[in-house]
Structures are given as C-alpha cells and as structure tokens.
Amino acid sequence: MESILPLDASTEAAVRRLYTRENPRGPSRELWRHAYGCRAWLNIQRDTATHAVLAVDLLDPPA
C-alpha cells in the first residue's frame, strides 16, 4: 500500500495520485504483461494517437 501512497499523505496528494491522469495524446509510458506467452512484464512507450510502439524494455531483465 505504501508503495502506492503513504498513509499520511495529504488529501491533495492522495487525489492526485489515485485519481488524476496525465492522459497524454502522444507518447505514453505503459506497463504491459505478455499474458498469453512468456508472462514477462514490459515497460512500453506507445503513442496513444497512432498506436506506434516506440520503445520496449523488460521490467526485470535476466541477469
């Protein structure tokens, strides 16, 4: 829980963290999971206007 929001956060900080979104029209950072395949977690940069995938990284690359 603390990783999402400290329990003593101000109302303003809590609302900002839990509810507001940048909602970009353009490049956006997203967390994806290859659910039907290797089940790896991926950091993806995707353009929300064109759906072009700009960058892909494994969240936890093998050593």
Binding site: R16, Y19, T20, R21, E22, N23, P24, R25, T48
Partner: peptide
C-alpha cells in the same frame, strides 16, 4: 485533459 493542462489542471480522465 489537454485543455485543462493549459490552465495547470489535471483531470481524473483517461481517454
């Protein structure tokens, strides 16, 4: 969201 950001605001909206 884009318009609100022009006034320094962030909305609880995702498109």
């Amino acid at each position: 969201s884009r318009l609100a950001a022009m006034a320094g605001m962030r909305l609880p909206i995702e498109c």
